[in-house]
Design a protein around this nucleic acid. Sequence first.
DNA 1: TTGTATGCAAAAGGTTTGCAATGAT
DNA 2: ATCATTGCAAACCTTTTGCATACAA
Lengths: 157, 157
Amino acid sequence: MAAKTTSAIRVLEDACRAGGLPVTTQRREIYDVLVHRTDHPTADQIWDAARQRLPELSRTTVYRVLDTFVKLGVATRTPNVGAAVRFDPRTERHHHAMCRECECVIDVESPNLDRIRLPDGALIGFEFDDYSVHIRGLCAACQRRRSRRESATRKER
Amino acid sequence: MAAKTTSAIRVLEDACRAGGLPVTTQRREIYDVLVHRTDHPTADQIWDAARQRLPELSRTTVYRVLDTFVKLGVATRTPNVGAAVRFDPRTERHHHAMCRECECVIDVESPNLDRIRLPDGALIGFEFDDYSVHIRGLCAACQRRRSRRESATRKER
DNA sequence: TTGTATGCAAAAGGTTTGCAATGAT
DNA sequence: ATCATTGCAAACCTTTTGCATACAA
């Protein structure tokens, strides 16, 4: 675990050096929070978590640091349907399942989805870089919520 | 053209009746704006367009009406990486190309992408409904912008 | 020492809510 | 007549900006 944290931070350090940017305490903490989460947190959620260890940390810095991460290529903004931007520490090709009720996002691993053949981007004037598959559905928690609600309704009658 | 507008509006009217909701002037105008656009506009862009014909229309109403459309199933919120929610009048399976520079979104038609085999949702506790493919890349306009910038840089030297 | 990052305060979007008046069926 | 919708104003949440100070290299 400790070893894993160390190697994860190294990714950030290398990226900062490559970009000629200083490795600050804030960047380290924020990256550490992000890289240990798989729930595609918003800037505010990251701020809440990082403040536990860095109480002086300002929201502004979180926004700026996340922006830097995206530019450095150590994080991505994930497509989402809500009003707050979400971030993902994974930059390789992978896929997402999104709950239609609670809007939570879960990573989907699938070698099949990784090797889809895209149409020719030139047809719509695009240069295609990469893609991901977004699956909509109902997550486990919301399925439970739904059946609880249904059995409650049945009892009422 | 006129015939197309009429039949498009019928989709909304049917949906409202099915949901037991009144068909208001505002809902008609907003639907008319949305259904004739393919650029996945934000609520504000829709407001700007609809106000041309309905000057009293308030922003609040646009937000509420779009929400109703999504609940009625005549529009969807499209996944996006920016700070403003975007809407799409298409509810059938289709795919999107998104520009990494300007964040514009263009529809991608492809029978191949329409028949991807998804992994088993149960593996991550999900009930999968549907999916779409999100392609990232550089749009035609941003490609031109880029080459213009490059030739300008060359002249400077 | 130098250039960049940070924190604060304030502003600028974007979205939601309460309430009285209006409109659709 | 009835119930839902609309517009307004205000609140709320998210993100950005300007500026003086602090920090990493």
